[in-house]
């Protein structure tokens, strides 16, 4: 198995692992945030505007951690620096 196959295999497998493991934490966090916000809404329907706005901001902040791992896996697949390096090595002098 040459180095390019190694790099391709490791990149693809790790891209899947990055997104799947990186999504576990934010998913749990978002679930907790939404459930707490729902019980807060049930107790105080008058404060719904503030709760909803804070919830959306919080959700987007939590979600961004999942987005970071998604960006990393996209880089691994579409803009892999090691892959480009290996291609340059084989095509080089």
């Amino acid at each position: 198995m040459d180095s390019m196959t190694m790099i391709a295999m490791a990149s693809i497998v790790m891209a899947g692992f990055t997104t799947s493991i990186g999504c576990i934490g934010p998913a749990l966090g978002e679930g907790r945030a939404v459930s707490t916000a729902l019980s807060a809404l049930a107790q105080q329907p008058d404060a719904s505007a503030t709760i909803t706005r804070t919830l959306f901001v919080g959700l987007a902040m939590i979600e961004s951690t999942a987005i970071y791992s998604f960006v990393v896996s996209m880089i691994l697949i579409f803009a892999n620096p090691f892959w480009n390096y290996a291609i340059a090595q084989t095509a080089g002098p």
């Binding site: 987007a60 987005i67 970071y68 960006v71 996209m74």
Partner: peptide
């Protein structure tokens, strides 16, 4: 860095 990557990741993932 977080500000930049958050916006980029969200918009890019939508298009992707």
């Amino acid at each position: 860095l977080a500000l930049a990557v958050r916006l980029f990741g969200n918009m890019m993932s939508g298009a992707m």
